[in-house]
Amino acid sequence: MWEFFVRSLDASTIFTIAALSELLGQRSGILNVGIEGVMLFGATLGFMVAQSTGSYLLGFLAGIVIGGLIGLLHGFFSITLGSDQVVNGMGIWILGFGLTAYIGYPYTGPLGMERIPDIFGLSPFFFVGVALIVIAWFVLSKTSLGLKIRSVGENPSVAEVSGINVTRTRYLSVITSGMMMGFAGAIYSLDYNPVWSNNFLMGWGFIALALVFFSMWNPYILLAGSILFGTLWQLSLNPQLVLPGLMSRYIWRTVPFIITVGVLMLMSTKWFRTRWGAAKPDALGLPYIKS
């Protein structure tokens, strides 16, 4: 049972960091529905580099760097070219999903390195994730940079006339966001489940995307949501630990997805929106083109 709990927190870590990265980008007005693709890139490149060099550090760096580059690409399409962000995100997801299937294939199998040491049974990245949440909250709500990021996400033209460089602020957010997505992917493939197989994420990125909507763009609610979904995910993988023999293990795998749809539905009801809504950044998904 303890082991299950710890493993759940490990899973939560990946949801936390991935969803937080998406939250950061969205707060600046950039929607990236391709988060799963960026994570696949981070996970695959991280895995490849770590296995070939034998260094975890280089592996994580590779994951972060490729994530940042993909973030830059998304920024280029969405900020500079001003194209539809949903189309761009879809492009990034399919690019990630298609290309990693090809380049990662020769690396199919376990990583074959000594596991990263844990702290009280927990992955050290759990603490990194919690720290990132606190830092993100502080930066967004207490600093000038955070005010700028929130402002370009709410109304870029107002930010512009207040003397804020919208383009630079959005690029900064979307690149940082990409780096964190890549990092989250690398945690998956190097620490949580160090085995490469084709398209192994199977929806982590999409659930992280939904988590941002659940969080109402608040990092602390995001953390709570991530822990809930981490536990749920873990339960769906190992139902026999908690509820042995209740349902087929394949049916258990559908549970996190069904609950995601359910919660998302609840969140979008009028009842919920009029009471808790209005947190969504006003300019989310809208390109800003200076007139």
Partner: peptide, 12 residues
């Protein structure tokens, strides 16, 4: 910016 407080708008 409607979602921000008065003071945040002024010092932005």
């Amino acid at each position: 910016i409607p979602a921000h407080s008065v003071i945040e708008n002024i010092i932005l």
